[in-house]
């Protein structure tokens, strides 16, 4: 369970990133955060594993405050949270399996990881994670030989190898084409359902949000302006979140999603 208690973020310039957010996300939810760019989606997501610092309030994960965690404590909390980035953030020159194993470094001593001495269970964990995203046969290829969609699936495998209970995905499909977008979103949904991993995704496609989310959170100017099940998120709701009618490039199109 993730809890935000009166969380605010003010940037050094005085811009308000998050304004007094109170939020509770239960284990196993598939939450999609929507909003215009600059509305605070990314800040909200990244404050959960403290890639972004907040200026006031408290964020608790399963009852433990990550806001006050430091050093080792913080790293232990972070290793329980997988993160997926828009630009994949794989080490392009390293092999796929090494990228996945990078998700395990938080579990071992510095020396051991620097020598690359991962225990056998870790290897198995990495391989089964790759298997889950259908990337097993690419294990020893270099990451830069893969397509964008494949790279994103490797980064999902990295989060799985972490044995994360939460996955944060910051615009995971923004640099992918429509077909691979669906594959990556399907992977995320499958993992969420099969393994019960709490999944929080930032998206800007209206139809994708409605299709995959169990719950949609709308963010505007650092505040939560909508929070409810995907079925309630009508076009009117989206217009309210965006402050204007939904435009065509905010729809991915493809599947017949308007019927939902």
């Amino acid at each position: 369970m993730i809890e935000f208690k009166q969380v605010s973020k003010v940037y050094p310039g005085g811009t308000v990133g998050l304004n007094n957010i109170d939020l509770k996300i239960e284990a196993g939810e598939f939450v999609v955060i929507v909003g215009l760019s600059g509305a605070g989606k990314s800040t909200l997501l990244r404050s959960i594993n403290r890639l972004h610092e907040i200026t006031s309030g408290d964020i608790r994960i399963d009852g433990k405050s990550i806001t006050s965690a430091e050093g080792r404590q913080l790293r232990v909390m972070r290793r329980g949270i997988g993160m997926i980035f828009q630009s994949f953030n794989l080490v392009k020159r390293s092999s796929v399996v090494r990228n996945v194993l990078a998700g395990r470094v938080g579990y071992h001593s510095t020396l051991r990881t620097m020598l690359g001495l991962f225990p056998k269970q870790d290897m198995e964990l990495a391989f089964s994670a790759l298997q889950r995203v259908n990337m097993l046969e690419k294990a020893y290829q270099r990451a830069d030989q893969l397509s964008g969609g494949q790279q994103q699936r490797v980064s999902i495998a990295r989060a799985l190898a972490q044995e994360a209970k939460i996955i944060l995905a910051d615009e995971p499909v923004a640099s992918l084409d429509p077909l691979t977008t669906r594959q990556v979103m399907d992977d995320l949904r499958r993992i969420n359902r099969e393994m019960g991993i709490t999944t929080i995704v930032n998206l800007h496609f209206v139809d994708l949000a409605r299709e995959y989310a169990t719950r949609i959170i709308g963010v505007r100017a650092g505040e939560i302006v909508f929070d409810g099940p995907a079925t309630e998120a009508t076009d009117e709701v989206f217009s309210a979140i965006y402050g204007r009618p939904v435009s065509e490039d905010e729809r991915l199109g493809g599947r017949n999603v308007e019927a939902i």
Binding site: K120, M123, E124, F127, S128, Q131, L136, A139, Y140
Partner: peptide, 12 residues
């Protein structure tokens, strides 16, 4: 899940 023998072997 497959047994570990099924996993790819690191190319030397």
């Amino acid at each position: 899940m497959k047994p570990s023998e099924g996993y790819p072997v690191k190319p030397s």
